Simulated scan of single mutants.
Amino acid sequence: MASSSLCCRCSWFRWASGPTPLELSSKTWLFLGLSGLATGASWVCYFWALKIGDASKVAPVDKLSLVLVAVFACAFLDEPCRSSNECSRSEQGKRKNRALS
């Protein structure tokens, strides 16, 4: 009983600090729906590929999709592309600044 009460309180806090689902724009709902359809289609294609192909060849292609997303984001969306060393140095600098303040 206590866990359900805590869950309700957490969900209330999350919605209290931002817009409720009914307040989202129709454009946001459209993209949420399209995202759901694309995700479902992706899983159907993945399982179909596993059915007809060798899992040792299908899984690496699936994992490569994360790398392709990062490359496309840098190439087409002008996202900053940084190496992992630059990212970790940036995080270390943020931690030092927080420690000093």
Results as ranks from 00 to 15, higher is better:
residue 15 W to D: 03
residue 15 W to G: 01
residue 16 A to C: 11
residue 16 A to E: 14
residue 17 S to F: 02
residue 17 S to Q: 13
residue 18 G to F: 02
residue 19 P to V: 13
residue 20 T to Q: 07
residue 20 T to R: 08
residue 21 P to T: 11
residue 22 L to W: 02
residue 23 E to L: 04
residue 23 E to D: 09
residue 23 E to G: 03
residue 24 L to A: 12
residue 24 L to K: 07
residue 25 S to P: 00
residue 26 S to P: 04
residue 27 K to G: 05
residue 28 T to C: 09
residue 28 T to L: 09
residue 29 W to G: 02
residue 31 F to W: 15
residue 33 G to P: 02
residue 34 L to G: 07
residue 34 L to Q: 12
residue 34 L to S: 11
residue 34 L to E: 14
residue 34 L to H: 06
residue 35 S to F: 14
residue 35 S to A: 11
residue 36 G to A: 09
residue 36 G to W: 10
residue 36 G to R: 05
residue 37 L to W: 14
residue 37 L to Y: 12
residue 37 L to A: 10
residue 38 A to R: 15
residue 39 T to S: 10
residue 39 T to L: 12
residue 40 G to V: 14
residue 40 G to D: 08
residue 40 G to M: 15
residue 42 S to L: 14
residue 43 W to P: 00
residue 43 W to A: 13
residue 44 V to T: 09
residue 44 V to R: 02
residue 45 C to Y: 07
residue 45 C to L: 13
residue 47 F to D: 07
residue 47 F to W: 08
residue 47 F to G: 02
residue 48 W to A: 12
residue 48 W to I: 04
residue 48 W to Q: 15
residue 49 A to G: 03
residue 49 A to F: 00
residue 49 A to R: 01
residue 49 A to T: 02
residue 50 L to Y: 01
residue 50 L to Q: 01
residue 50 L to E: 00
residue 52 I to K: 05
residue 52 I to C: 12
residue 53 G to A: 09
residue 54 D to W: 02
residue 54 D to I: 03
residue 54 D to G: 01
residue 54 D to M: 02
residue 56 S to D: 10
residue 56 S to F: 03
residue 57 K to L: 04
residue 57 K to A: 11
residue 58 V to K: 01
residue 59 A to K: 04
residue 59 A to Q: 06
residue 60 P to I: 03
residue 60 P to D: 10
residue 60 P to S: 08
residue 60 P to A: 06
residue 60 P to M: 03
residue 61 V to H: 02
residue 61 V to W: 04
residue 61 V to C: 01
residue 61 V to N: 00
residue 62 D to T: 06
residue 62 D to S: 11
residue 62 D to E: 10
residue 62 D to K: 02
residue 64 L to V: 07
residue 64 L to E: 14
residue 65 S to W: 15
residue 66 L to H: 05
residue 66 L to V: 07
residue 66 L to N: 03
residue 66 L to I: 03
residue 67 V to K: 03
residue 68 L to P: 00
residue 68 L to C: 05
residue 69 V to C: 14
residue 71 V to W: 15
residue 71 V to R: 14
residue 72 F to H: 08
residue 73 A to N: 09
residue 73 A to E: 14
residue 74 C to Q: 10
residue 74 C to Y: 03
residue 74 C to G: 05
residue 74 C to V: 11
residue 74 C to W: 12
residue 75 A to Y: 04
residue 75 A to G: 11
residue 76 F to W: 13
residue 76 F to K: 06
residue 77 L to Q: 11
residue 77 L to K: 12
residue 78 D to V: 04
residue 78 D to L: 11
residue 78 D to Y: 09
residue 80 P to R: 12
residue 80 P to C: 05
residue 80 P to N: 09
residue 80 P to T: 11
residue 80 P to D: 10
residue 82 R to P: 01
residue 82 R to S: 10
residue 82 R to F: 08
residue 82 R to D: 05
residue 83 S to I: 00
residue 83 S to L: 01
residue 83 S to Y: 03
residue 83 S to H: 02
residue 84 S to W: 00
residue 87 C to F: 09
residue 88 S to C: 13
residue 88 S to K: 13
residue 88 S to I: 11
residue 89 R to Q: 10
residue 89 R to P: 00
residue 89 R to E: 06
residue 89 R to S: 12
residue 91 E to S: 15
